[in-house]
């Protein structure tokens, strides 16, 4: 008998698959965004408005990790972007292998931007690298400003935090400054936007960031291994 010390995370094989996928997407010039949030935070509504605003500028597609239904995919197709249902094999998250299969389901058409609407959950999706170039998380005002304290990993792995449903802020005691400070303490580089998908407030800044990210993904030399 022989003991081999490994000291690697249980998801090491997924991390490797994700790095390969990210490299392939970089080569194609397709920015994949992993969009994560709690159920009902407003992921699909944010996408509807964003696609409506940007569909003439970028070729956009969406992959909906809905467990059983295609309602979100149908909503996206109505706006005029291609959408597929991504199958999670009954899991609480998408991993790199499932993401690859969902991308294959989109077909050979080239896209500048593909958004994966991950399973609604602030815990599990954060642990699995999907191969996305950027991770974007949503936190809606009714959920409360204490979420960075309760779900630190999600805030640590995200490149962008979008605080949504700002139009209902008058009815809740959401403390924006406290939330931003908590998120920045976990992740000093996180970009933060506050938007309302109902009124369009704050969309300009978010969409500017997105336009720049799509451009940078095509132009900047490949750095596809995630460090964290």
């Amino acid at each position: 008998m022989k003991i081999i010390e490994l000291k690697e995370t249980v998801t090491a094989s997924n991390d490797r698959d994700a790095a390969v996928l990210r490299g392939e997407l970089k080569e194609k010039g397709t920015l994949l965004i992993n969009l994560m949030a709690s159920p009902g935070a407003g992921k699909t509504t944010l996408l509807e408005r964003t696609i409506r605003d940007l569909k003439d500028r970028h070729r956009i597609a969406v992959m909906e990790a809905d467990v059983d239904s295609d309602v979100d995919a149908v909503r996206i197709e109505k706006i005029g972007a291609k959408a597929v249902q991504a199958h999670t094999d009954g899991m609480c998250h998408m991993d790199a292998g499932m993401t690859r299969r969902a991308l294959e389901a989109l077909g050979d058409e080239p896209f500048d931007l593909v958004v994966l609407e991950n399973v609604g959950n602030l815990i599990c999706p954060a642990e699995f690298d999907t191969g996305a170039g950027k991770c974007v998380m949503l936190l809606s005002v009714p959920e409360g400003d204490d979420k960075p304290l309760k779900y630190p990993l999600m805030f640590s792995v995200s490149d962008v935090l979008i605080i949504t449903k700002t139009d209902v802020a008058p009815y809740f005691d959401f403390d924006f400054d406290a939330c931003v400070a908590r998120a920045k303490r976990l992740n000093p580089n996180i970009e933060i936007f506050a938007v309302s998908s109902k009124t369009g407030e704050g969309f300009e800044a978010w969409e500017n960031w997105l336009n720049q990210a799509v451009k940078d993904w095509k132009n900047e030399p490949g750095k596809t291994i995630k460090e964290n």
């Binding site: 022989k2 490994l6 000291k7 995370t9 990993l153």
Partner: peptide
């Protein structure tokens, strides 16, 4: 306290 790591494996020679 949040980790899940493969520390080591024992294998047949």
């Amino acid at each position: 306290g949040n980790e899940c790591i493969i520390k080591e494996i024992e294998v047949e020679d």
